[in-house]
Amino acid sequence: MPIDWIWGLIGGLLIGTGGAVYLLGNGRIMGASGIIGGLVDGSGWSTAAERVVFLVGVALLPVLLMPFYGAVDTHITDNYAVLVAAGLLVGVGTRIANGCTSGHGVCGMSRLSVRGIVATCCYILAGGLGVVLFRHILGVI
């Protein structure tokens, strides 16, 4: 089994443990788009402190782990048009669908939520078709 897969599994276990802590500790579903979106559109300002502290944790731990890894490259595209289009689609889409990979994917599917399963099928299928279209047919990414 390639080392990347093992790290994927370990990382997944950490992500799931985070979700378990958030659920059993605070009664919340760990959905990144909902936590960010609630701060952005004001719908979650009553729990703003909790959301901000959560996001600080998300951003901070990679900083603390970085010294053990050396250089980390996100390989993010430098095509600004693609970045803007993708950001808008992710922002609008996750808020209309009320969830993303963490909320619908990890938290929803693990409780066999029909909405979580349908959403996950939709975004994986759309993502896969998108990559085929934009990479292999149009060649823009």
């Binding site: 990679p62 993010i76 669908a97 349908v118 975004y123 993502g127 934009f134 990414i141």
Partner: peptide, 26 residues
Amino acid sequence: KLILGSVMFGIGWGLVGLCPGPSIAS
């Protein structure tokens, strides 16, 4: 909304390879 939103999200996710969680982590 669930279907349309998820399809939009999926296309954006595929275009750059980022979803909301990793965009904060990185």
